[in-house]
Design a protein around this nucleic acid. Structure first.
Lengths: 312, 312
DNA sequence: TATTTTTATAGCCTTAAACTATTAATAATG
DNA sequence: CATTATTAATAGTTTAAGGCTATAAAAATA
């Protein structure tokens, strides 16, 4: 039994297809088929049920795949240990970022990070929290930036910053003349929301839930981007909430519609999250360093109240 | 990097000698040397410091060995999973037993176990608790029978039975005429003890500590076996405590010197212990089944008070 | 039924992992 | 201090493993 064979098994289990798996492993299909057969012979057990289309794992197969993933993960760590010893921070690193953090945070730290750690090949993907959790668990992401706490047993979190919710209240809105807002002022029914799947949307809903009843799932207007949200709001279709960093580069005119909350201001907790196996920890720590350093300058709120990003 | 290479590293780390390691791995010394060199080349790091005699691990080497042990352990589990699926309970199994349990418990379950699981090649070793802990941690033992609780983070325990302490009080002893004893009757200073290293000795000391001050480490007479302890006691050199199972096959004359404790009787907890990685769990469960079944007939005490086997 | 997709088999080539034999280096001993 | 063990490294050879291409077989789809 070799680590290579185990990773072949993982690839087939994932793609349910020998040919595609072979491509992902950078070998030919016969090579991969042979190795898996060899392993099955050695263990004297069928890992895959080839009669099913697409191919399925047998019952033992499922257990073996779980264990194989363990072994392959632990093996990857050998290189990690060596890298750490040498002080080498490099290699490919896949980072997921949720959509409502991406456009504001990424430009702030990316240049700095690339300059400081030129050997790291960052591959960044915009993903929803749900997608991020799946991919961290199956090893397709090395880490991600998301709103926390997520309450995931398999995922560890390191808080980067707290980002207050800022209200965007258009001119004709009942709250426009309030200088500061209370969370109790909010009414989910005149609030513009992001589309389903955004955890910022869930955060806003949770925030409103605390204080008001609401017509479950009867939101009027939803949008896929915060920019559209602002435009819709300007059209007089309701107020909305923005993450603080999004308010920094608004035009002066729009800034006049911003209303902060009285302290403790509701806020989301934004964290660097990663699998509990702690693979590539050097890079994760490098990211944390750079991002915390940058954000510390931009955000300086002390007294905040964390709103959960989970839809309950 | 292969699992084979990692196990070679483990062997050298353990024996601090390439030649001996090669023997243990059933390959020639050059083969093992080459593979370790290849791994060092691939990782571009020295795992062993060959300038030291005997050979030592480098700093990275130590970390790598820890991780390698993980990987090799997890790999062994693949076969475990297959075995479990097939309902196969077999293969070599190394079991440690503490000296004060060995002579009484082993004859009770061994024949039964071998009959029920003929494919398991049991290799039994008499070892002290300390030796057992070391060997379970380094993988030289698959499981052991010892007095618990041990408070070892890396070791799991499954209680087999509670074995009361029974006093052996010779004729001329001050307690001889008491029909039953209280633990408060005990005085460590007129107690015959096993030699250092036996956890039963520590249990007895802990029991006495609870109620009396004692002359620290000023025990008069010590012995390596319980049989000798009884003989010494018969010579009028003091009373002693025996584990209940040892009292069953005493000659009738000696049995008249036995004094039980009032309930709750002090007792030791005897458990099957194994590494938290839970390798060869099928065999461990088979052992537990057989032993519990046998002992249930021989021991039927309900109301006992567990005495810790740890020397504090 | 024909066509495409997908896995298994056959045969070949290259590399890697094992061996034996030997050398080099170190430690132990006379 | 020279000699002898002990032990790791190197050289050269053999066998086996892992890879490839080409092709056949089986299954799914048109």
């Amino acid at each position: 039994m070799t680590i290579t064979q185990l990773s072949y098994v993982l690839a087939v289990a994932e793609h349910q297809n020998f040919t595609k798996a072979a491509q992902k492993c950078f070998v030919t299909q016969p090579t991969l088929s042979m190795q898996i057969q060899k392993l099955e012979d050695e263990l004297d057990v069928l890992i895959f049920d080839r009669s099913k289309k697409p191919i399925e794992l047998t019952e033992v197969g499922k257990k073996l795949v779980t264990q194989a993933r363990n072994i392959v993960n632990e093996s990857n760590r050998i290189q990690d240990i060596v890298d750490q010893e040498k002080g080498f921070v490099g290699g490919e690193f896949k980072l997921g970022i949720i959509p409502t953090v991406m456009p504001t945070l990424l430009p702030m730290f990316l240049t700095n990070f690339v300059k400081k750690y030129p050997k790291v090949k960052l591959k960044i993907e915009e993903l929803t929290t749900e997608e991020i959790i799946t991919r961290i668990n199956d090893g397709h992401l090395d880490a991600a930036i998301a709103a926390t706490p997520l309450e995931q047993e398999s995922i560890k979190e390191r808080v980067l910053y707290f980002e207050p919710f800022v209200a965007y209240v258009p001119q004709n809105h009942r709250l426009h003349n309030n200088k500061k807002l209370e969370t109790s002022d909010l009414d989910i029914n005149d609030m513009l929301l992001l589309e389903d799947g955004h955890c910022f949307r869930d955060g806003v809903i949770n925030l409103c839930k605390v204080f008001k009843n609401h017509n479950d799932d009867k939101f009027q207007l939803e949008s896929g981007s915060i920019e559209t949200l602002i435009k819709l709001s300007n059209e007089g279709l309701g107020m909305t909430l923005l993450p603080y960093l999004h308010t920094l580069d608004l035009p002066e005119k729009s800034k006049q519609n911003l209303r902060f909350f009285n302290e403790p201001s509701p806020a989301r907790e934004v964290s660097l999250i990663y699998h509990k196996s702690e693979l590539k920890m050097q890079i994760i720590e490098a990211l944390q360093d750079v991002i915390s350093g940058i954000v510390r300058g931009a955000i300086a709120f002390q007294n905040v109240q964390i709103i959960s990003p989970l839809s309950k």
